[in-house]
């Protein structure tokens, strides 16, 4: 196991993206293997995950966040 999914990862920490699903818009927004994101928040009741990378804030629905693999960044 090289990492865990972004949905389950604890909030408020930096993560390096290990694997992303084949969703084109993710790469356009800068989420690809190697990118470093801050997981700001996970919304309750099946809500999305809010991440920050560079100066952008991006909301990722539960199902897409679950299929993004990340590793905690020191």
């Amino acid at each position: 196991m090289t990492g865990r999914d972004l949905y389950a990862a604890p909030e408020g920490r930096m993560y390096r993206v290990v694997r992303v699903p084949d969703v084109k818009i993710l790469r356009s927004l800068g989420i690809f293997p190697g990118a470093v994101v801050l997981k700001k928040k996970r919304y309750r009741l099946g809500g999305p995950v809010l991440v920050e990378l560079a100066a952008r804030q991006i909301a990722l629905g539960k199902d897409v966040a679950r299929s993004i693999l990340v590793k905690e960044e020191a």
Binding site: V23, L26, P48, Q57, I58, A59, L60, G61, A65
Partner: peptide, 8 residues
């Protein structure tokens, strides 16, 4: 239905 991917 694709999940939300949205820049805020």
């Amino acid at each position: 239905v694709d999940p939300l991917v949205l820049e805020v």
